[in-house]
Structures are given as structure tokens and as C-alpha cells.
Amino acid sequence: MKKYFELMREIDLIKSIKPQEIDSYLTEGSCKITQYGKNNIVHFVGEVCSKLEIILSGKVVIERIDESGNLMTIAEFFGGDVLGGNLMFSKNPYYPMTVTAKEATLILEINKDRLFSLFSDNHEFLKSYLEYVSDHTVILGDRIKHYVNRTIRESIVSYLDYECKKQNSNIIKLSMTKKALAERIGVQRTSLSRELAKMRAEGLIEFDSVSIKLLHNFLNKH
């Protein structure tokens, strides 16, 4: 239990709640700490959102499968991030996409009644909660639009542009496998490989298993 409280002290949203209060909430059952193993499903599509979940450690992703059967990673969440913050108060409080733990993850669950009590009794918590939900609702909405409306080529180009600026080089070192990159972009691995091959044939890029080199034709276009 001690390690859980150490993790909680690092999270802005929880800092306004006294440790002894959290301890009493855990004892009575209005709060709960749940562990998920790597690739465990946290929520299925259509599942009711009935509690606020604060990630203490680990990594959680929101995924969807498109009409072609491709797995698309919409968003990633880490320690300090919140699940269900805006959804649980919706008229349709159902998870629209699958939520999966991509590595061993610890989550603090707060049930709805306890959450309402915190809102009314702890104004600092309420302020932090509203700030978080407001900021991240806009970000997530933009991200979903970004992925849903783009072609495979546009998604690849967007990723390469971002990594080119981030790494400050036209030779992009891949920090993930082609399979993981395909999931990030939201296509099948074969579709990604086919599109990369087309871009190579058009003189835009060169690539191997660990890097992608952006050629002059690509750089001049973008």
C-alpha cells in the first residue's frame, strides 16, 4: 500500500486529497486500486462508464477497428492521466472504443458517489478535475478527427514530418517495430509496407528495418 501512496503523491489531481482520506475511501470501498497486466482489456466497446479512473502507473491506449479490420491507436494515457472524466456524466455513458493496458498498469478507481462528495467538499480537487477534463476533451476530439479523416499516405507523412522535426534529422530512427507503427497509424502492417514501398518507388524515401530516410523529393514537397 505504501508504494501506491507514493505514486499518488506525484499526481496533481490527487494531491488535494489527504492520504488518510484516501485510506478510508479504500477501506470502505468507494475507491479501489486495480492492477492490469500487459494487453489486458480495461474497458470493452459499449461498456458503461460508472467511475472515474486515475492512472497511477503504466500505459493505457484507446483503440478502434475500422471497417477494413485495421487496428487504430487513437490515444495513449500514462501515469496521472484520467479515464472516464467526461464520459461518465454523459447521457450516453458508454465507452465508444476499446481501452487496453499496453503494459503493467495501476489504476485508482473512484465511484460516482464518492466523486460527487469530493466535488462538493474539496474545491481544489474540483478545480483540478475541471481543468484536466476541459483540456483533454479538446485534445482527444482533435486527435480522433485527425486519424479518422486521413489516408494511409497522409498519416505516414504526418508521422514522418513530426519525427523529422523531433529528431532534427532527415534520417528517422524508428523507436518501434513496423507492426507497432502500423497500429499507431491505424492500418494493417501489409498496407503500411505497401505504401512505404510506393513512396520509395516515387523517390520520396529510403528505408530499412531500423530507419527511414527522407529524400529531397519528400523534403521539397513538405
Rank of each mutant, 00 (worst) to 15 (best):
K3M: 05
F5W: 03
F5I: 01
L7F: 02
L7E: 08
D12E: 10
K15C: 06
I17E: 07
K18H: 15
Q20F: 13
D23Q: 14
S24V: 09
S24A: 14
S24L: 12
Y25Q: 02
L26V: 03
S30R: 09
K32C: 11
T34C: 04
Q35I: 08
G37Y: 05
K38N: 06
V42P: 05
V42R: 12
V45N: 11
V45C: 11
G46K: 05
G46H: 03
S50N: 13
I55G: 00
I55K: 02
L56N: 02
V60F: 06
E63P: 01
E63F: 02
R64D: 06
R64S: 12
E67K: 14
E67V: 08
S68E: 11
G69T: 01
L71A: 03
E76Y: 07
F77E: 04
F78E: 11
L83T: 00
L83S: 01
L87K: 12
M88S: 02
S90M: 03
K91E: 11
Y94M: 11
T98K: 14
T98I: 07
V99C: 04
T100K: 15
T100H: 04
K102W: 05
A104R: 15
T105A: 10
L106Q: 09
L106A: 06
L108A: 04
N111I: 00
N111T: 00
D113Y: 09
R114E: 14
R114P: 01
R114Y: 06
F116M: 15
S117E: 15
L118K: 08
N122D: 10
K127T: 09
K127H: 10
S128Y: 05
S128G: 12
L130G: 01
E131H: 10
E131F: 09
E131D: 13
V133D: 11
S134K: 08
D135A: 13
I139V: 13
D142Q: 15
D142C: 07
D142H: 13
R143E: 14
R143W: 02
I144V: 13
K145G: 07
N149H: 08
N149S: 14
I152S: 04
I152Y: 03
I152N: 07
S155N: 12
I156V: 13
I156A: 14
V157R: 13
S158P: 02
Y162A: 10
E163K: 14
C164H: 12
K165V: 15
Q167M: 09
Q167N: 08
I171L: 15
I171W: 09
I172G: 09
I172D: 07
K178W: 06
K179I: 03
L181R: 07
A182R: 10
E183W: 04
Q188W: 01
Q188S: 12
S193Q: 07
S193I: 06
R194V: 00
R194K: 12
L196H: 08
M199K: 04
R200I: 01
R200T: 05
R200N: 08
A201L: 10
G203V: 07
I205T: 03
F207D: 04
S209I: 08
S209Y: 11
S211H: 09
L215F: 03
L215N: 07
H216C: 05
H216M: 10
